[in-house]
Nucleic acid binder design. Structure first.
Length: 271
DNA sequence: CAACGGACCTGCCTGC
DNA sequence: TGCAGGCAGGTCCGTT
């Protein structure tokens, strides 16, 4: 489900309820996520105030005086804010109960996500250490992508989805950004010009920023922490639109599999 | 190193 | 109606 815009939407949604309040306790009903939820997570969080909630790629980082909670939503994860008690559904694995009475509820049917704890610098954690730049930061531009891509023969679509290259670009937004930039998803990353990487870097940035503004993409079930859907789906150019007309030239959009992921593009607009 | 396939899970939809 | 098969927004890990 969540790519960068959905994770950022989630961060903004829970921040007002998590920050400036004290954690009462943590209730773990199902610790078997991608990696086990630490057995002492409650001791790490209980009684402390959350000091900051940041995002690094698709990871959420919630810091208190003792360390940092590292959260990832995987494919099907979500965090919701409950202002009144609600009985947990089967996949509501973890609750963070705040002193003020609100509950931050972690749900993840497929359990590809994780909730981990680190007492050290979270950016030194093995999961975060090797991540590439944030696509909305100044360090990310066409010159960087061009430099990074030299000698790479694999498709450019997989290249921009590689978190060591740039974080946060998942399967939807990779197709969308390549469509905006007019680049064929199967083109070898090393055979895209510097000029075209300038356009692509801008397209990635624009696509992600626009989606954040619209509250993310709701394909099946994404809702923000308040339970509201995102509206970016209505503006998708290619994702999920195989056979339908290209919004630019009218040609039927195509679907191929790249690196085991469905990929959508216009054969006449993207070269 | 870069590149690829498999693995981890459940739910939902399609077609027989 | 039941069931098998395929597919889904991620990403780590082992092998070539």
């Amino acid at each position: 489900m969540p790519e960068l815009p959905e994770v950022e939407t989630t961060r903004r949604g829970i921040a007002p309820f998590l920050l400036g309040d004290r954690v009462e306790r943590v209730e773990v009903r199902e610790p078997r996520l991608r990696w086990p939820v630490p057995a002492d997570l409650d001791q790490c969080l209980a009684g402390t105030e959350m000091l900051s909630l940041d995002r690094r790629g698709k990871y959420l980082l919630a810091r208190n005086v003792r360390g940092t909670l590292i959260a990832h939503l995987g494919m099907s994860g979500s965090l919701r804010v409950l202002t009144r008690p609600e009985p947990p559904s089967p996949h509501d694995h973890v609750d963070i109960l705040m002193a003020g009475g609100t509950v931050i509820r972690y749900r993840d049917p497929r359990r590809f996500g994780c909730l981990l704890w680190t007492g050290g610098d979270p950016f030194d954690h093995p999961l975060l250490r090797d991540l590439g730049p944030e696509p909305l930061s100044d360090g990310f531009d066409g010159a960087y992508l061009h430099r990074c891509s030299r000698g790479r023969r694999a498709p450019v679509k997989g290249f921009v989805m590689d978190a060591r290259v740039v974080v946060g670009v998942g399967n939807i937004y990779a197709s969308e950004a390549l469509s905006m930039a007019g680049i064929h998803p199967l083109r070898a990353a090393g055979r895209v010009s510097r000029q075209r990487y300038d356009v692509l870097a801008g397209a990635i940035r624009d696509t992600l920023e626009r989606s954040i503004r619209l509250g993310g993409t709701t394909l099946r079930d994404f809702v923000n922490p308040a339970g509201e859907p995102g509206y970016f789906e209505q503006t998708l150019r290619v994702y999920g639109r195989a056979g339908q007309p290209c919004r630019t030239c009218g040609a039927p959009l195509r679907q191929v599999v790249v690196g085991q992921r469905s990929t959508f593009y216009c054969a006449s607009c993207q070269r």
